[in-house]
C-alpha cells in the first residue's frame, strides 16, 4: 500500500478580520463542533492562535486565527520579521468583515476596515502571490432579510475594489453562524483545497452507475463539509440547490446533540449508519473511509437498498487504495 501513499499536503490558512468580527466563532463551529449558541463565551484572541486540522487523509489545514486588535495587526503589517512569518507560504486567506461594523462604510474611501484589508492583501501579494482569497461578509443575520442581497452586493463590490492583485480571483460570501450560509462558504473554501478531486469523483460516479443512486455526497467526517458530490439525471432535478450546506448544518447540529446526550466533549461524535425509508426515496448516510461519510439517495424499494449497501463495501476498498484516503493516519484514534 505504501506505493499509493502521497506526501501530506500542508496548507496554511490565514483567518483575519477586525476584533469581534466572528473569526473564532466560525472556527469553533466548523472545526471544534461548537454550536452557534456556545460561542458567546469565547475569549478574545490574543496574537495568533494556530491549530492544525487533518482534513481527509493527506490534507493538513494549518489554521492561523489572527487576533484582530489594532496592536497585533500593526505588528503583522509593520514588523518585517512578523510580516514575513505570517504572510509567507499561505494557501488561503479568509478575511472576515463584520457587516455591522461602523468602520465598514462602502461610501467612505477611508473606512478603517477596508484600509486595513487592503494593507493585508498587499502584504499577502508580496509574500504569497499564489494564495486564494475569500472574503466573508459576516453576521448577515443582523441585516433585515429583504436587504441582505443588496447589502452583500454593495459590500462585496467595495471589497473587490480594494483587493489589489486578487481583484479578479477573490470570492465573497455572506455568512452567519445562525444559519447554513456558514457551511456554504466554508464548503467552497475547503473544496478549493482538496487534491485529486477528479479521482474521487470518478469512483463516486461509478457507484452512481452501479447502484441507481440519484445522488451521492461525500462529507468530511468531523466538519461534515461537502467534499464533493455526483448526481444521476433524476438527482440533477432536485429543486433544493442549497441542500449541501443544509445537510452539513443538519448533521453537524445533530452531532452536537449526540454530544449533549452522551455528556462527552470530544470532537468526534460519531454515529454508525443513518437510514431513512419513505415512499419517495431511501437514504443512507454511512462511513465510507475513516475520515469521510457518504450520503446516498436511492429510489424507494427494499432491493435497491440492500444492493447499494453491498456496493458501498466495494467502493470503500477503492477509496482505501486511493492515496489521501488511507486509513494509516487515523490509526492512533
Amino acid at each position: 500500500m505504501d506505493k499509493f501513499k502521497q506526501k501530506t499536503e500542508k496548507k496554511k490558512v490565514l483567518l483575519m478580520g477586525r476584533s469581534g468580527a466572528g473569526k473564532s466563532s466560525m472556527r469553533s463551529i466548523i472545526f471544534s463542533n461548537y454550536v452557534a449558541k456556545d460561542v458567546r463565551r469565547l475569549p478574545t484572541t490574543i496574537g495568533v492562535e494556530s491549530s492544525t486540522f487533518k482534513f481527509l487523509g493527506n490534507l493538513m489545514l494549518n489554521i492561523w486565527d489572527c487576533g484582530g486588535q489594532g496592536a497585533y495587526v500593526e505588528s503583522y503589517l509593520h514588523d518585517s520579521a512578523e510580516r514575513t512569518k505570517v504572510f509567507s507560504g499561505v494557501g488561503v486567506l479568509i478575511y472576515v468583515f463584520d457587516v455591522e461594523s461602523r468602520e465598514f462604510d462602502t461610501e467612505d474611501r477611508n473606512a478603517r476596515d477596508l484600509v486595513t484589508y487592503s494593507a493585508i492583501v498587499k502584504a499577502l501579494a508580496e509574500n504569497s502571490p499564489q494564495a486564494r482569497v475569500f472574503a466573508l461578509v459576516h453576521k448577515m443575520d443582523l441585516v433585515q432579510t429583504d436587504f441582505r442581497e443588496q447589502v452583500l452586493k454593495d459590500k462585496s463590490s467595495a471589497i473587490r475594489q480594494r483587493s489589489g492583485t486578487f481583484q479578479r480571483t477573490i470570492r465573497t460570501y455572506g455568512t452567519s453562524i445562525w444559519d447554513q450560509t456558514l457551511y456554504k462558504a466554508w464548503g467552497m473554501i475547503v473544496h478549493s483545497l482538496i487534491p485529486n478531486l477528479d479521482v474521487i469523483e470518478g469512483i463516486l460516479s461509478d457507484l452512481v452507475g452501479i447502484t441507481e443512486a440519484e445522488e451521492i455526497i461525500l462529507f468530511e467526517r468531523t466538519t461534515f463539509l461537502t467534499v464533493t458530490s455526483v448526481k444521476s439525471e433524476i438527482g440533477e432535478r432536485n429543486p433544493y440547490e442549497d441542500r449541501f450546506e443544509r445537510l452539513s448544518n443538519i448533521i453537524k447540529t445533530f452531532k452536537s446533540s449526540i454530544s449533549t446526550f452522551t455528556g462527552s466533549s470530544t470532537s468526534s461524535h460519531q454515529f454508525g449508519e443513518l437510514y431513512i425509508k419513505t415512499t419517495r426515496f431511501n437514504l443512507i448516510v454511512a462511513m465510507l473511509t475513516t475520515n469521510t461519510y457518504a450520503l446516498i439517495v436511492l429510489p424507494p424499494g427494499e432491493v435497491e437498498l440492500q444492493c447499494t449497501r453491498l456496493n458501498l463495501f466495494i467502493a470503500r476498498d477503492q477509496f482505501v487504495q486511493l492515496a489521501g484516503f488511507s486509513d494509516e493516519s487515523r490509526k492512533s484514534q
Binding site: T262, Q270, L274, Y275
Partner: peptide, 8 residues
C-alpha cells in the same frame, strides 16, 4: 421509518 445505529 428510520434508524441510526451506533450512537455511543
Amino acid at each position: 421509518e428510520s434508524f441510526i445505529s451506533n450512537v455511543k
